[in-house]
């Protein structure tokens, strides 16, 4: 509430300033945390079974949602793409349209968005609850660093899973496009696959898509472990942190995607 001594404008300025300063402080704290995670990552690889377990929880348990969503997105792309391409008499290019959209954009981006809400939120909730129930503190008192033992394996498990999930999403999407285009609508299968093969470039399209997935995976996992580790040790604290993970990850994915796309595809005749 504005006090009498302060005009409405000054109050707003103070509020905006306070929010900005808080955000910068938090960002600094998050960067230091990120550095700590990276410097304590040795154990995630020296004791790979720890990371393998997290690959199972983050990656394997996300398979169903990735496979189902990928197939549906591909089928919808097939329908919409055919509707447009047919007007220009080039419906055989459907394979190109579906595969490029998926491999370059939809695969990495949508898979990462799904991953953030499926696995990212789970990582935050788990670490947050471990903190709230003093499990992390107990670990510290047992002379075991929770960043090395709990945080780093979850981070790397997610980073390793993400590109695989992204590729799987694209693959299922292309399969969905094939189902609609070839099986349902009746486009020539040879043209569908042949045009796709000659149009999709390994480095420019597939590799760049994998790089995007890796970057998104690192961003989502970093946000997820940070929010969990930083969560106030209460029920509201953990639930708020989980929500923030999904929101912040989604924004980060979309923002990073724009930046990466600018660097990867500018000047390639697009």
């Amino acid at each position: 509430m504005p006090s009498q001594a302060e005009s409405g404008l000054a109050w707003w300025l103070r509020r905006v300033g306070g929010t900005v300063v808080d955000a910068i402080v938090r960002l600094g704290y998050a960067s230091r945390f990120a550095a700590a995670v990276l410097t304590h990552s040795g154990s995630a690889f020296r004791r790979f079974p720890l990371t393998l377990r997290e690959i199972y929880f983050a990656g394997v348990l996300s398979l169903v949602i990735i496979i189902v969503s990928g197939t549906f997105v591909g089928m919808v792309l097939g329908l919409q793409g055919y509707d447009v391409l047919e007007r220009y008499g080039s419906s055989e290019a459907l394979g190109v349209l579906v595969s490029l959209s998926l491999v370059r954009e939809l695969g990495p981006v949508v898979a990462a968005l799904l991953f953030a809400s499926r696995a990212g939120s789970a990582i935050t909730a788990e670490i947050g609850l471990m903190k709230a129930t003093e499990q992390l503190s107990a670990m510290e008192m047992m002379a075991v660093d929770p960043i090395a033992r709990v945080v780093a394996p979850r981070f790397w498990g997610g980073v390793i899973s993400m590109p695989i999930l992204g590729l799987l999403f694209s693959t299922m999407g292309i399969f969905g496009g094939y189902l609609v285009g070839v099986k349902l609508i009746g486009i020539d299968a040879g043209a569908f696959w042949g045009q796709m093969q000659s149009a999709v470039d390994f480095q420019r399209d597939i590799l760049n898509g994998v790089v995007k997935s890796l970057v998104f995976g690192a961003a989502v996992c970093l946000i997820a472990v940070f929010e969990g580790y930083d969560a106030p040790p209460t029920a509201e604290g953990v639930s708020g942190a989980t929500t923030r993970t999904v929101v912040a990850s989604s924004l980060a994915i979309l923002g990073l995607d724009f930046i990466l796309t600018v660097f990867m595809f500018r000047g390639l005749g697009l």
């Binding site: 471990m130 129930t133 003093e134 107990a138 008192m141 047992m142």
Partner: peptide, 12 residues
Amino acid sequence: IGMLFQFGALFT
């Protein structure tokens, strides 16, 4: 040093 936390703090 061994420590017993207030609510046990067992790894769930």
